[in-house]
Design a protein around this nucleic acid. Structure first.
Lengths: 159, 159
DNA sequence: CCTATATAGTATGATATCGTACTTAACAGC
DNA sequence: GCTGTTAAGTACGATATCATACTATATAGG
């Protein structure tokens, strides 16, 4: 039995890369000056997944080096969007909690994107998006689980 | 008739953002030290779309500010992967041509990714990828055409 | 306990990305 | 041609991202 055809990976990743750029531009157009997509993503993660995460947990979740996450959190803290407090369970660690201002910013951004998406929905059949969503989710889960197979650098993938 | 449901946009863009990060890590693990995804993307664009593009055309194609593209091209030129020559049709402009070394690097990177993709194909049904590819392509084309509707910043979208 | 190892976070410097402002060339209208 | 405007590229500084190296704490084995 021959191997499955791996040919679709390259074009799929290629299209996804371009769509990511364009959708990020949509998001950042609705964020206040000084904030970019990674800042919003962290706020969204704290609300959707779990509040009070440690910086390392956030770095793992986003597949970025911990030094990058430290910087992102510092910006959020400087804007009063998160509170960083000591981790009561680990003297080395800290916990990141979203503030009321952070929640308002996250919710307000999503609300501001509503009309943008509604506008897009008038020109693109969103039923097709709903169709591909399960595949994208499965692909994301699959890649996320198999990323540890070949740890690249200091992305906290070792072990 | 009610508006189409725009709800799928947010989760689809969310999954796409994560997949982009993971697939970029796969690519960069196969690039020589000092080169990252944007460098490869430019080389790939010169081969797949058209060689001899101007820096501004490349910046438009990738939706990045022209100053970012200037820097990316400078790195490629420093590595001998592209040649930058004056534009015979426009005294203000230049043209970027890929070199033999650039072609070898691009082809070799794709070749190196083959086993990675083959490995992924053993754990994920690539027929599902082939199914969603047309939707992703249509979405990319759609977003690309409608990005000029709301020009954000200095991404050369005006006009 | 004590020691070796692993982990969380930080400090630092290098590179990447981006916005603003500037120079120069092209071009349109007169 | 002259002039005002647009476009291509660059200079510069600010922020973001990242790798390396370091400090401090936790944890496992003895």
């Amino acid at each position: 039995m021959p191997d499955a055809d791996s040919a679709p990976f390259f074009p799929v990743f290629n299209e996804i890369g371009i769509i990511e750029q364009l959708s990020r531009a949509l998001l950042e157009a609705r964020l206040p000056k000084g904030l970019i997509a990674p800042h919003f993503s962290v706020l969204n993660h704290l609300i959707r997944v779990a509040d009070g995460r440690t910086p390392v947990e956030l770095a793992r979740a986003f597949q970025v080096p911990k030094t990058s996450m430290t910087h992102t959190i510092a910006v959020l803290e400087r804007h009063g969007l998160v509170d960083v407090r000591p981790n009561p369970n680990d003297g080395r660690s800290k916990c990141v909690w979203i503030t009321d201002a952070g929640r308002r910013l996250r919710d307000g951004t999503i609300a501001a994107l509503g009309p943008d998406f509604a506008d897009l929905a008038r020109g693109f059949d969103t039923a097709r998006l709903a169709q591909i969503l399960p595949v994208l989710t499965d692909l994301r889960v699959f890649l996320d689980r198999h990323r540890n197979a070949e740890p690249p650098r200091d992305r906290l993938l070792s072990k």
